[in-house]
Simulated scan of single mutants.
Amino acid sequence: MPELTAEEIALAGEYVLGTLPLTERQAAARRIATDSAFAREVARWEARFDPLAEEVRPVAPPARLWAGIEARAFGTPAPAPAGLWRWLAGASAVSAAFLGAILWLGEPLMPAQGRMWVSDMVSQDGAVRLAALYNEKTGEMRVSMGGAAPAAGRDFELWLIAGEAAPVSLGVMPRRGQAAMPIPAELRARIANATLAITEEPKGGAPGGVATGRLVAKADLRRI
């Protein structure tokens, strides 16, 4: 297997730092899935940077700055329409990020309202993208859906995958734009280090709470 060039090694580092333009970041994300050498290099950069992140002392920005960033990223969230979030009865559990998602949402920042988790999901062809930002303190997840909409008569559904547990639906996604969704209290402990995934399901969501459609994209939730 050929070794990576210096430029490819630098590309992996820029991907982890979140400094690549959107199109280059999407290309790098697709390459991780197909190029094992590049994927290992990305993992090495993550291992280098993660300890540095632990040394950073959080500095809370003014409340007005945080509100402005949220408004810029998601707009003013409106209440979800009736039936938008389809919660599973009984054992509803949630299934399956990169720092670049925060850069895409507007600004790199240290959270002012408790620990934050981010996931940036991009389909292999780059046509579908969903950014998710979860606030541990409020138990709310913000999502921003971009790119191609699902096919006619279909919906995108968001799943949380935690460990070996079966994926659990978080709900049907808006076809485009932003929405705010509360995470039920019994599911919040499973958010940390889980994976978010998007599937394309029949309109209204997967029947019986079990994914049946194609996997569109997935990405880990990462703490910021």
Score class of each variant (00 low, 15 high):
residue 72 R to E: 13
residue 40 R to T: 15
residue 189 A to P: 14
residue 205 G to I: 09
residue 136 E to A: 07
residue 176 R to H: 12
residue 123 S to Q: 03
residue 1 M to I: 04
residue 92 S to I: 02
residue 102 I to Q: 12
residue 63 A to Y: 02
residue 54 E to T: 13
residue 13 G to V: 01
residue 23 T to Y: 02
residue 165 A to M: 03
residue 98 F to W: 10
residue 1 M to A: 11
residue 183 I to V: 15
residue 101 A to Q: 01
residue 49 F to T: 13
residue 180 A to W: 00
residue 175 R to F: 00
residue 169 S to P: 05
residue 161 I to A: 05
residue 222 R to N: 12
residue 138 T to E: 11
residue 192 A to L: 00
residue 176 R to C: 07
residue 36 S to H: 08
residue 220 D to G: 10
residue 209 G to E: 11
residue 159 W to K: 07
residue 144 S to E: 08
residue 2 P to F: 07
residue 130 L to V: 14
residue 223 R to C: 06
residue 8 E to S: 10
residue 77 P to V: 06
residue 151 A to F: 00
residue 131 A to W: 01
residue 140 E to M: 10
residue 189 A to G: 12
residue 50 D to A: 05
residue 137 K to S: 15
residue 17 L to G: 15
residue 66 W to V: 09
residue 32 I to T: 13
residue 193 N to H: 12
residue 220 D to E: 11
residue 12 A to N: 03
residue 1 M to P: 10
residue 68 G to C: 03
residue 207 P to K: 04
residue 197 A to L: 07
residue 170 L to S: 06
residue 163 G to V: 04
residue 168 V to T: 10
residue 24 E to N: 11
residue 223 R to I: 12
residue 83 G to Y: 04
residue 213 G to H: 06
residue 89 A to Y: 14
residue 42 V to F: 08
residue 78 A to Y: 02
residue 1 M to G: 08
residue 25 R to L: 01
residue 36 S to V: 05
residue 159 W to Y: 01
residue 61 P to R: 01
residue 137 K to T: 15
residue 20 L to F: 08
residue 95 S to M: 08
residue 93 A to Q: 15
residue 203 K to P: 15
residue 20 L to R: 05
residue 28 A to V: 00
